[in-house]
Amino acid sequence: MNPQPRAPQALPEVGEEEIRPLIDRNLHLEGPLLPMLHDIQAAFGHIPETAVPMLAAALNLGRAEVHGVISFYHDFRKAPAGRHVLKICRAEACQSMGGEAMAERLLAQLGLDWHGTSADGRVTVEPVYCLGLCACAPAAMLDETLMGRASEARLMAAVEGAE
């Protein structure tokens, strides 16, 4: 569901043997599917198509059910993002401090739309609805680094400073 302006690329091949341990180590949990999906995405940057039938078999679910879960949650990707993900908060507290205009200026500088990835594959920009930094808005997060009282200059510098 995330439109990618970048030209479609062949998805990286991920073998079953790489996915298997990430499923197995969560099998003992109650409600193991989300922990499995988080582990798989952390390892490969997305949920490879190969994983879907494996998850379905491990959990006695239909493939459609597994697909339904993956597609429900904003976090899970069918294809890898850029090397870094910049999440900019679009929620009300950040809007009250001019966050929306800041995000638009930054997107214009990067030549991207929401969910877009830069041509060099460096960064994907995504909206997020609240980072819990509402008393120091506007807020953003580059990978897992949080930024409060953000400006487009600061965000741009952070993006340019990331390899």
Binding site: C89, A91, E92, A93, C94, Y129, C130, G132, C134, A135
Partner: peptide, 11 residues
């Protein structure tokens, strides 16, 4: 699952 904008007490 504190998703409400303007809230951060749980965090």
């Amino acid at each position: 699952d504190e998703g409400d904008s303007g809230t951060f007490a749980d965090r």
